[in-house]
């Protein structure tokens, strides 16, 4: 992280599934590169042998027993649906199974 960081805005926007216009791309790139430049501070600290923290506390083994509960009524499940048919969500035809 020694050089000025750059961000491939097209690639990241595609990953994030957000369409950006050219103005947004230029603006975000400049702003985020400034932010990333500030982030370079991080590389100055020695983290050898330090465990990463994925959680605020080190707690293990939180689970539940395998006991089923009632399902949500289908009308409720679909009440906010932008497009529905036959109790299912409608989306534009999906071309590739993946």
């Amino acid at each position: 992280m020694s050089d000025k960081p750059t961000i491939d805005i097209n690639y990241v926007a595609k990953l994030a599934r957000i369409e950006l216009d050219e103005n947004e791309k230029a603006k975000f790139s400049a702003q985020l590169e400034q932010v990333l430049d500030y982030f370079k501070k991080l590389s100055e600290v020695n983290v050898d042998g330090v465990e990463p923290s994925a959680h605020a506390h080190s707690i293990y083994n939180v689970w539940r027993d395998d006991i089923p509960t009632a399902a949500m009524p289908v009308e409720e499940a679909l009440m906010n649906a932008p497009a529905k048919r036959d109790n299912q969500i409608v989306v534009p035809k999906v071309v590739d199974e993946a």
């Binding site: 939180v62 689970w63 539940r64 395998d66 006991i67 089923p68 509960t69 009632a70 399902a71 949500m72 289908v74 499940a77 679909l78 036959d86 109790n87 299912q88």
Partner: peptide
């Protein structure tokens, strides 16, 4: 904790967690 069975009527075996509604959280089985 909602149940699963094969070939049930569409979207009858769901709950807020399955739909990923805002605010839901997973708990391990």
């Amino acid at each position: 904790s909602v149940a699963y069975k094969f070939a049930e009527a569409p979207n009858t075996l769901t709950d807020p967690v399955v739909w990923a509604l805002p605010g839901v959280l997973p708990v391990l089985n």
